[in-house]
């Protein structure tokens, strides 16, 4: 009986293991699979990401140069970024912030060749 005593005393003397979350946030690990971002100026709209995505949350319209992504359907597996032929799809380290409404991320690219002087737009 009472074998837990030493453990609870140790806990009392040490810092708590929990964090006051929104106030203190642990930095993400380097390898963490966070939000999917597409540099639409580099994207070639090849559509490989849309084909490979296991949750089919990406749709690519080649003619209209539209790339849309449903973050609430995404499972964060990172396959799309892995298979991306142009290297425009990147998986960020940080998670997407919570939102009040489900919404699609729709990115419109230029149908003309990419201009590298523009600042990259991320979504």
């Amino acid at each position: 009986m009472f074998t837990m005593t030493s453990t609870i005393l140790r806990n009392l003397l040490k810092e708590p293991a929990t964090r006051r979350y929104p106030a203190s946030v642990r930095p993400s690990f380097e390898a963490a699979r966070g939000e999917i971002r597409n540099d639409i100026h580099v994207c070639t709209f090849c559509g490989v990401c849309a084909v490979k995505c296991p949750s089919q949350c990406i749709t690519v319209d080649r003619k209209a140069a539209d790339w849309s992504y449903d973050p609430s359907a995404c499972v964060q597996c990172g396959v799309c970024a892995e298979v991306c032929t142009s290297g425009s799809l990147q998986q960020a380290r940080d998670y997407r912030k919570p939102v009040r409404k489900k919404e699609l991320v729709v990115l419109k690219g230029a149908t003309t060749p990419p201009k590298h002087s523009d600042p990259p737009v991320t979504g």
Partner: peptide, 9 residues
């Protein structure tokens, strides 16, 4: 109670 359980409480 939270503190002995390593929580902030």
């Amino acid at each position: 109670t939270a503190r002995v359980q390593s929580r902030i409480g």
